[in-house]
Simulated scan of single mutants.
Amino acid sequence: MAPMAPSFSDLAEAEYILLTSFRKSGEGVATAVWAAPDGERLLVWTPTDSYKVKRIRRNPRVEVSVCDLRGRPKSEPVEAAAEVLDDAGTEEARAAIAKKYGIKGWIGVKASILRRGRKGTIGLAITVPQ
């Protein structure tokens, strides 16, 4: 049986989601990320200088699916839109990740701040049409 398209709840509860952003050529580039629900959107936290941030700034169209740690899809992808967050939004994303992922999320966020500084990571908000 083929995997089904995930609901927002499926994505919000998944340990990892596969976030696919698109190059200028239209080619998709997928990355497994942590994501935490925030109302009607998913918050993701990633290095500020990552190519996915540059691609999303240029084109907010993304696809998301449930995946495993290695980025192997466990569901069909769904179309979504991503937005790069400001400093306050990034703090919300860090807090949401730490809350959802417990001690490993808290350690991951704190270690990243120590390694990269507060400006070294940035939050993304992903809106999945209902």
Rank of each mutant, 00 (worst) to 15 (best):
M1Q: 13
A2P: 14
P3M: 11
P3R: 11
P3V: 04
P3W: 10
M4A: 10
A5V: 03
A5C: 02
A5W: 11
A5Q: 04
P6Y: 00
S7F: 01
S7K: 01
F8L: 04
F8R: 08
S9G: 05
S9L: 10
A12L: 04
A12P: 02
A12S: 02
A14H: 13
I17Q: 05
I17K: 05
L19N: 05
S21W: 06
F22R: 04
F22W: 08
R23G: 07
K24M: 07
S25H: 03
S25C: 03
E27I: 14
E27S: 12
G28M: 06
G28Y: 03
G28T: 04
G28K: 02
G28W: 05
V29S: 03
T31F: 06
T31V: 13
T31S: 10
A32R: 13
A32W: 08
W34G: 00
W34C: 02
A35S: 13
A35Y: 11
A35P: 05
A35R: 09
P37C: 01
D38C: 10
L43W: 13
L43T: 03
T46S: 05
P47K: 03
D49K: 08
D49T: 06
Y51N: 03
V53D: 08
K54W: 09
K54I: 05
K54S: 10
I56K: 02
I56A: 04
R57W: 13
R58A: 15
N59R: 12
N59C: 09
P60S: 09
R61Y: 08
R61H: 09
V62L: 01
V62F: 04
E63V: 10
E63Q: 15
V64P: 04
S65G: 11
C67R: 12
C67L: 05
C67F: 08
C67Y: 13
R70P: 04
R70E: 08
K74I: 02
S75N: 06
V78M: 11
E79A: 12
A81M: 12
A81G: 10
A81D: 07
E83S: 12
V84L: 03
V84K: 03
L85Y: 13
D86I: 12
D86M: 08
D87K: 15
A88M: 11
A88Y: 10
G89L: 09
T90S: 05
T90H: 07
A95S: 15
A96Q: 10
I97K: 07
I97G: 02
K100S: 08
K100H: 12
K104H: 06
W106C: 04
I107D: 00
I107C: 01
I107Q: 04
G108D: 13
V109Q: 12
K110Y: 14
K110G: 08
A111D: 14
I113D: 14
L114S: 09
L114Y: 11
R115Q: 09
R116H: 15
G117Y: 11
R118M: 05
R118C: 04
R118Y: 14
K119M: 14
G120Y: 14
G120Q: 03
G120A: 10
T121K: 12
A125P: 06
A125D: 07
I126K: 01
T127Q: 13
T127V: 15
V128Y: 15
V128Q: 14
P129K: 11
P129T: 11
Q130A: 12
